[in-house]
Design a protein around this nucleic acid. Sequence first.
DNA 1: ATCCGATGTCAAT
DNA 2: TTGACCTCGGATC
Length: 274
Amino acid sequence: MPEGHTIHRLAREHKQLFGGEPVAASSPQGRFADGAVLLDGQPLTGTDAHGKHLFHRYGGDDSGGGNWLHVHLGLYGDFRTGAAPVPVPVGQIRLRLVGERHWAELRGPTVCEVITDAEKDALHARLGPDPLRDDADPAAAWARISRSRTAIGRLLMDQEVIAGVGNVYRAEVLFRHGIDPRLPGRELDRASWQSIWDDLVALMREGVRVGRIDTVRPEHTPEAMGRPPRVDDHGGEVYVYRRHGQPCLLCGDEVRIEVVAARNLYWCPTCQPA
DNA sequence: ATCCGATGTCAAT
DNA sequence: TTGACCTCGGATC
């Protein structure tokens, strides 16, 4: 279940499992049959990630060329990998990759397509800075945020402003900095923005490392506070995400929920005052 | 067996 | 702002 850390983790894993090898590509489901033909038998020569977009390069070399596989998992997409032998296909498998020792299966992506270098460049140009990329320029995000009347809780979800942040990181980073999600971007001060960005870099790197989203500071963990550990689908410890109606871990006030741009937003009105 | 929700995005209104 | 889309798994009947 994908925010940016998941995608970067996949890019790293896929390079490790298939890099340099010829890969058999197929579409058991059939919806990516034409694309799979273009990739089938080509060596995986590189992987990349920007925000929630994943790329594999087949053929070509460091100077370019070849084809790029572009995948966006969307809300339900799922990439699974395993060691040989390849399992019998179950369910709707858009793309199956089989290397010498490993396989990967892609289900339910919003995007699965083959694109050129130029099309990939255009995609990068459209996306905002990604806290997980070395080439990220947080000033580009600040330029947008500092001029916008839009609420910061919305801006953080806008992939053209900042790439890779999803609903969990949005809610959690705002909580960690005590910022009301409804605060207009232009009313956020520069120091707060810098600390949010630095925090996202650290949180998301940790997310790539451990494969889940943990945002609770050591002094606030269930162990440290004598509470039972929290179990949730995303597998990590969080302050407010999906904790609406429950007491805030820090102040005890009730965590709020509100639908913003068709997504559930969670925050503590006391820790994140207007 | 059926319903519902989910860490996302886009087109249409 | 709303609905559509993609698919799976957990909750509910």
